[in-house]
Design a protein around this nucleic acid. Sequence first.
DNA 1: ACACGTTACGGCAACCGTAAGGATT
DNA 2: AATCCTTACGGTTGCCGTAACGTGT
Lengths: 295, 295
Amino acid sequence: MLNLNHVQAFIAVIETGSFRGASRRLSQAQPTLSQWIRKLESELDCPLIVRNNQRCQPTRQGQMFLPYARSLIQVASQVKQRLAGKQVVIGAASNIGIYILPEKLKQLAIDKQENIRIDLVIGTNPDMVDKLESGEIDIAAMEWWDNRPGFEAHPWLNEQLVIIVPPDHPWSSRQSISLDELALAPMLGGERGTGTGTRLRQLLDEDAQRLKVSQNLGSTEAVKRAVMAGLGISMVAQSAVTDELAAQRLCALTLNNTSLNKQLYLVAPTNLPEQSPTRRILNELTQPDPKLQTC
Amino acid sequence: MLNLNHVQAFIAVIETGSFRGASRRLSQAQPTLSQWIRKLESELDCPLIVRNNQRCQPTRQGQMFLPYARSLIQVASQVKQRLAGKQVVIGAASNIGIYILPEKLKQLAIDKQENIRIDLVIGTNPDMVDKLESGEIDIAAMEWWDNRPGFEAHPWLNEQLVIIVPPDHPWSSRQSISLDELALAPMLGGERGTGTGTRLRQLLDEDAQRLKVSQNLGSTEAVKRAVMAGLGISMVAQSAVTDELAAQRLCALTLNNTSLNKQLYLVAPTNLPEQSPTRRILNELTQPDPKLQTC
DNA sequence: ACACGTTACGGCAACCGTAAGGATT
DNA sequence: AATCCTTACGGTTGCCGTAACGTGT
């Protein structure tokens, strides 16, 4: 089995360009480095480094090995950080992770005060469930939760959904429209996984059949571009189009007599120690935001 | 530094549910396993396994550690395979990797005869350049090559581009159209990265200005769906729509007096040993395909 | 002559296995 | 009583450092 000290030695030799330099970096006697590299080469059964007095360079196999080596060392050191509570990983269902969380995480105080690193992993809602259970993430930001044991969901943001139309659309100067009007417009559907697209059908029940929906352009970005290009209108989370609204590349409308919104949750394991970094980040995030954004 | 034997022991204990089972799987004395796990726990400075006569289970930290542990072991064993030439990694620019290569790789004889595993990595064209240089992939399938030293490009497939329209489109029964007609139609652009979308502009020079192109729906899949939904027409690689053409969910046309195609290349390091698996896969792929597909 | 990598070798620590001990069913 | 994990302890391995040896500039 590979020895990670040897792997690290390999990286050090390549990066410093010499065995001596690597021995200094790793605080080891230089012959030890020779020995370690030789061990590694015999373990992998191929030469990794071309020895040279001026500059040691990787062989072709060494080059192939290098990215794997870095990955091994990085994972090994990261997992220590993680288990020591120095790193907290937050998972987010796609749109939340892309449009909302990066801003929220910037505002967190904890990672600056102490030396805690926060990582963000983006996936689908079902991904989040798996990753929570496997321990891959500490907190999940998602659109629903099925109350499975061992975890608890905290209501978080209540996301406003808006109907978006291009600036040259006849409705662009209006603030809201009726359901009947909406039924006549060509509607571009968001991807099904995130729920944004399906939310409308939920609300409208059998009326949904009347909507001209052309499904699944693949991503919210694709939907936005299609709407901007005048291919139709759509409904998306307001947070996904703040930039475009500000730049007046899109216009947002609401529905008459119907509030369109979507509750978001933060999910984390139960029984988190009160002072653990994960718990404190969770607390910071769920504290009510002083500035409520209204359209 | 983490010891991969200990990490593997951890996985074995979790998977078998007992120290004894793990000791059998790893052909070690049982007290050795106790020792290894204890070492691991002291290295990571937290308990990983709840000991129990019936079933040993991971602690919360153990659960967090598990995916990292698996990743470490997997990378470590994969890299051995790779350096031994038992694994060849092929990279492909997105559409090639999605629509063309999986079929081609199925036809390869080498991986069945010998025990060679072929992996496919999908990325953008610039990704492929990086991954080739870093040794992450052995062969790249892409749409251009800049003749950088150390690598050689082999012309591979010459991909036919077609104009796609929905079955209920007025052109759906025709075989080809003129440039003037095309200029009047709403054209959905493929993503820029893959070159499919920009290829048309190259060919048409200043005429391109006349095309009504609404750019970037994000992916070829999104473009196909948009065309099927009647939002417009587009131009894509024929290989990307073979299924839809067969199912008559889309119709393909060519341009009058203009051949639309795109040369694809296989790129690999120079000086590959003649009998190396990588070289042999390269040879198999570049051998002219006996059955030429025409529309 | 100098700087670098390799080889040789010895002391020492770590490792692994055997045997005995404690806990749970 | 049987099964399982832990502890205790000894022999062996293999690791790391010092010193001496090639080699290229």
